[in-house]
Design a protein around this nucleic acid. Structure first.
Length: 578
RNA sequence: UGGGACGUCGGCAAGCGGUCAAGCCACCGGGUUUUGAUCCCGGCAUUCGGAGGUUCGAAUCCUCCCGUCCCAGCCA
């Protein structure tokens, strides 16, 4: 057996393990599946994938990888009413983008409709399933409640022959939509409501994205899922907590079909991901899109994979985040600071540094010759010596960040102020000599400065120190750009819960400042041809990427992925800056 | 009032009867720095939802209680 040495669990790298891996380790130690580990990621193609799915994808594909097993991509397409090919394609793209490969194992529950149908006949033959002629309403009424048992259907004791005949005629389209269902014959008094003769098939004349009009009966999730796992040879069927109540049914179907180890899948449930200040339900996400609260599924504020991609997140960062949050059965909500941490960690390592002035203030360097242009050398990434350097044009008129100048600076402010000297990153030292104000509004419109001709590349021969280093951009060479700053989508940590508690619409908690657009930004010339798909560090600001939809050569548009940590802002806000 | 699950630091999360209750994020110091970024160093639960009990010894076992989540779709 070349699979996995039970004495060396796959989780040894981290030194700690989650309960799913522990369970797998135990199965391996006991030889339950002959050491085989085979998982699957089973999305329903009724929406776009979000960060919560990423957690599941990283878990399922990750486990397969660690244990030398496989992970299938299987679409749970049993309900043609909500499912569309658009979603199938986007899901494939997103899983790939996250960095996972299902190889040749792309499956659909609908691939097994015929097999499932045969299985169902088998259950009928064994007296374990029956055709029920009751209406949906009747079925609901007789199901009982959590505290009261349900009542048996009058059709529950039909003969096997009659059931078989009816089932075949259901398939062949003899009956109207909704007129009959097939149910598992379990126990209408079971305390677990899922066991009160759950529905296996419903009649629905609906075009199916995969099977077209071949079927007018469709299996339910409960009937299709476990059997699909079994057919594919899945060993560990990992799903979220809300399916815990379904596990007895999952097992009941497998028992009914005489599934046995080592080929009998096992369902394991973990807590789904909840992130603060956003929403994770596909239904609500769809609403945000349809009602126009966001620009689409890939709006950079959305927690969708495509939204994060457009926002400039890297797949590595998303994966690291998913791995770092752990897997447990505790309902919890992760702090977005955790996501941002992994984003910065990854982007810091890889993002090319670049200068961009978001709120420009004109600076004239009076003792710098008019018309002269120097090319200064700038490193592309101090974290990565292999990233090389580039040349930046420097000239008499530049822009600096408006907030980098204070006419009346607080104590711990060590940027530019009247009479102060600061360093222009990669270029020279300048001193502010004069503040030019608008005659009417009194706003600062321009700074008159002088530079030290001895200073070069950011240092001076005498080695004197300055406290502040500013980013800048040469006025004549700068490229105009639009920059979009994003903030949390909702202004409360728990929009869904809070809405319910306070009897409001969750949309009433949408953060009105989740997007702010800056139109007059000045960015360094190298950004004119910034390729979509790379995220840059705008020095001293944060990470930004060209918007994949709206950015063009003529009118570049950048999305802020995440800001840099800003201890000065924190200091100033706390009032400790003097 | 039925069934299933979960409660360990501000947020995650290890721990599975035996010296001090991992680690990460956040936070708070301090150092380095041509990004107030990064990096480095240090601090951060005498206590494990509560109360009893078993034991030489319990976050870990037992009992009761409290709190939270899931289940009455022909959704998944």
């Amino acid at each position: 057996m070349d699979k996995q040495n039970p004495s060396e669990p796959a989780s040894r790298e981290t030194g700690t393990t989650d309960f799913v891996r522990s369970l797998i380790d135990a199965d391996n130690a006991a030889g339950t599946y002959d050491g085989k580990v085979h998982t699957r990621f089973p999305p329903e193609p009724n929406g776009y994938l979000h960060i919560g799915h990423a957690k599941s994808i990283v878990l399922n594909f990750g486990i397969a990888e660690e244990y030398g097993g496989k992970c299938n991509l299987r679409f749970d397409d049993t309900n043609p009413e909500k499912e569309e090919v658009e979603y199938i394609e986007s899901i494939k793209e997103d899983v790939r983008w996250l960095g996972f490969d299902w190889e040749e194992r792309l499956f659909f529950a609908s691939d097994y409709f015929e097999q499932l149908y045969e299985f169902a006949e088998r259950l009928i033959q064994k007296g374990l399933a029956y055709v029920d002629d009751q209406s949906a309403d009747q079925i609901r009424e007789t199901r009982g409640t959590p505290t009261e048992a349900g009542r048996n259907s009058p059709f529950r004791d039909r003969t096997i022959e009659e059931n078989l005949d009816l089932f075949r005629r259901m398939r062949s389209g003899e009956f109207a939509d909704g007129s009959r269902v097939v149910r598992a014959r379990i126990d209408m008094a079971a305390p677990n409501i899922n066991l009160r003769d759950p529905i296996m098939y419903r009649i629905r004349r609906q075009h199916h994205p995969n099977t077209g009009d071949a079927w007018c009966i469709y299996p339910t999730y409960d009937w299709a899922h476990g059997q699909s796992d079994w057919i594919e040879g899945i060993t560990h069927s990992i799903c979220t907590l809300e399916f815990e109540n379904h596990r007895p049914l999952y097992d009941w179907f497998l028992d009914a079909l005489d599934a046995a180890a080592p080929n009998r899948p096992r369902q394991i449930e973990f807590a789904r991901l909840n992130l603060g200040y956003t929403i994770m339900s596909k239904r609500r996400l769809l609403e945000l899109v349809r009602e126009g609260h966001v620009s689409g599924w890939d709006d950079p504020r959305m927690p969708t994979i495509c939204g994060m991609r457009r926002r400039g997140y890297s797949p590595e960062a998303v994966r690291n985040f998913c791995r770092s949050i752990g897997v447990s059965k505790t309902n919890s909500q992760i702090d977005i600071a955790m996501l941002e941490f992994h984003l910065r960690e990854d982007l810091n390592r890889r993002a090319p540094r670049v200068m961009a002035v978001l709120d420009p203030l004109k600076v004239v360097i009076e003792n710098y010759p008019e018309g002269k242009v120097e090319q200064v050398e700038a490193d592309n990434n101090p974290e990565d010596p292999d990233a090389g350097t580039r040349l930046l044009p420097f000239s008499r008129v530049i822009y600096i960040e408006r907030e980098d100048f204070r006419e009346d600076p607080p104590k711990k402010f060590f940027r530019l102020a009247p009479g102060r000297e600061v360093r222009l990153k990669h270029a020279c030292y300048i001193t502010c000599n004069e503040v030019v104000k608008h005659p009417v509004t009194g706003d600062v419109v321009e700074l008159r400065c002088s530079y030290d001709p001895e200073s070069a590349g950011g240092t001076t021969p005498d080695g004197r120190k300055v406290k502040g280093t500013l980013h800048w951009v040469s006025a004549d060479h700068a490229v105009d750009a639009e920059v979009r700053l994003y903030d949390r989508l909702f202004s409360v940590a728990n929009p869904a819960d809070q809405a319910q508690r306070e009897g409001r619409e969750y949309t009433s908690y949408l953060n009105p400042e989740s997007l702010s657009v800056l139109k007059q930004c000045k960015v360094e010339p190298s950004l004119r041809e910034a390729p979509v798909g790379t995220t840059f560090q705008f020095l001293r600001h944060g990470y930004f990427c060209p918007d994949s939809r709206d950015s063009s050569l003529d009118a570049p548009v950048f999305n802020r992925t995440v800001s840099l940590r800003d201890s000065w802002a924190k200091l100033e806000q706390s009032g400790a800056a003097g």
